[in-house]
Design a protein around this nucleic acid. Structure first.
Length: 464
RNA sequence: GGUCCCAUCGUCUAACGGUUAGGACAGAUGGUUUUCAAUCAUCUAAUCGGGGUUCGAUUCCCCGUGGGACCGCCA
């Protein structure tokens, strides 16, 4: 069996999309599952829209989720010379022809087709060289001479056999008027020179396969395997667009989603392995196959992502999670005073149990990170005369403590419950508000245990 | 409009042609709990419609309906 090689071929015209990274993930997993290669090809032949910063951003997104490509990334624009040579060869062999039609002519044809409600197919005006009048001072585009009869069948590894009448495939341009190659030509030439064995890409490329297959045949090249994976839809049901709230990988990073979460979520979106829901990295590689990919498109479900994230946060090693949190805060300018880091790390074990995102942890840790406790007027109602008395009693007991543990705190609180004829709530709520400025948050004892004794005393003394 | 693809709980999905149609998320109810969560228990909820084939169809075939993709000298 020959070596499996897959590629991910984004164009660097924007940040990496959630659909894009799933395609990358499937390609990567498939190649790793087969002990093969995974390449990254930057399709930057659209000079107008391609940007270096997007290229770097895409690579970063891939790295973030754990995907490493083999070798150096393949830059398509560096191979233009080769693409042109192939175009010339196709021309010479009679598989392509020069087209002198003007943009206006083409536009006119398109409008006509639209009016009649029929699909636009270039009228092949320049296909017959005998009838062709060569205008002066016009650079021709080069069109591929598509088959005009018969059918073409593609055996797709996900979709099964797809049969199409050749007649609907137009004579597509392979070399533009300005001499630059188009996508169809470049992609085929690159896939061939890179020895790609499996082309795994979005469903939206399905029709392209029929054009590309003809180039393979004309060049007498071996056709790779194709697998077209269903697209991801937004909540509304259509193709994901930039307008959707969370559509790029960076959007999810900003939300405080862990890479494992997104990897696991995307893996299970459109792919399944029995009833299994949680896949660690190794399992993903080991179990991934093309057979498990479903045929129908799927919708993004934010609550599912959050619940998976909750799972991964809960099960992550505290030190590792702490590093993730620090990176997250640094990236989004959420300040962590270095003097608080120790306390924060010490508190991860309970903070991680009540968070769906890294941002949740950050929010719940505000009482640690911030020196100033702001109590809203609503919450300050909890600090009435009776409560203040309780707090005062607590303070004097607390100050005398030599060893602060959950047990010793419980003892104090129980004593106060008796003394003030109240319940835990009657003490817990004002204490919590005094210490954190909020009615909500981690367990009260965890809060007290995590704060320095001085700090706790300081905060209690502020309540007058 | 043309071509192609798809169709199981609200969502992601499982089910050699024989299951009480399963799991997960979300939702609901209750227990636990110092708050918010979390957690535990229980529950609600689906084979798009119509025809075939078959002893038997979620599964195979046809038609309809619905959804989607593509229809660039973008990739």
């Amino acid at each position: 069996m020959s070596l499996v090689a897959t590629r991910f071929a984004p164009s660097p015209t924007g940040p990496l999309h959630i659909g894009g990274i799933r395609t990358a993930l499937f390609n990567w997993l498939f190649s790793k599952n087969n002990k093969g290669k995974f390449y990254l090809r930057i399709e930057d032949t659209d000079k107008e829209r391609s940007k270096e910063e997007y290229k770097n951003q895409i690579i970063q997104s891939l790295q973030w989720i754990g995907i490493r490509h083999d070798d150096k990334e393949y830059i398509q624009s560096e191979k233009i010379k080769l693409h042109k040579e192939i175009a010339e060869e196709l021309l010479k062999k009679g598989f392509a022809y020069k087209c002198y039609c003007s943009e206006e002519e083409i536009k006119e044809q398109k409008e006509k087709a639209k009016k009649k409600g029929i699909p636009f197919v270039y009228n092949r005006k320049c296909r017959d060289p005998k009838k062709l009048e060569v205008p002066k001072n016009v650079n021709p585009a080069i069109r591929f001479k598509s088959k005009m009869s018969g059918n073409t069948i593609i055996k797709d590894l996900v979709q099964g056999e797809i049969n199409i009448s050749n007649f609907i495939i137009e004579d597509f341009v392979i070399l533009r008027k300005d001499g630059t190659p188009t996508y169809h030509l470049s992609a085929v030439v690159d896939d061939h020179t890179m020895n790609i064995s499996h082309v795994i890409r979005g469903d939206d490329h399905k029709i392209n396969t029929f054009k590309q297959k003809q180039i393979y045949e004309a060049m007498n090249w071996k056709l790779p395997n194709f697998a077209h994976i269903p697209l991801i839809h937004s909540q509304s049901g259509s193709k994901l667009s930039k307008r959707d709230k969370a559509s790029t990988v960076d959007d999810y990073i900003k939300l405080g989603i862990l890479p494992d979460t997104l990897r696991n979520y995307l893996l299970r979106l459109g792919w399944s392995h029995k009833d299994k829901e949680i896949f660690n990295l190794e399992e993903s590689i080991e179990l991934f196959d093309l057979k498990g990919i479903g045929k129908s498109p799927s919708k993004l479900d934010m609550s599912r992502i959050l619940s998976l994230n909750e799972h991964y946060i809960k099960h992550m090693d505290e030190k590792e999670l702490f590093e993730f949190l620090k990176d997250f805060c640094k990236k989004f300018e959420k300040k962590i005073n270095s003097s608080k880091e120790k306390t924060l790390l010490k508190s991860m074990h309970f903070l991680k149990n009540k968070a769906k995102t890294l941002d949740d942890i950050y929010q719940n840790a505000q009482y640690i990170l911030s020196d100033i406790i702001n109590i809203s007027s609503e919450d300050s109602k909890l600090l009435d005369v009776a409560s203040k008395k309780i707090l005062k009693d607590f303070l004097s007991d607390y100050e005398k403590m030599t060893k602060i543990t959950k047990e010793s705190l419980e003892k104090i609180v129980n004593r106060l419950i008796d003394k003030h004829k109240t319940n835990f709530k009657g003490i817990g709520q004002p204490l919590r508000v005094a210490l954190t400025g909020s009615k909500f948050g981690p367990g009260l004892f965890n809060i007290i245990l995590s704060l320095d004794k001085d700090e706790t005393i300081k905060r209690l003394k502020l309540i007058k």
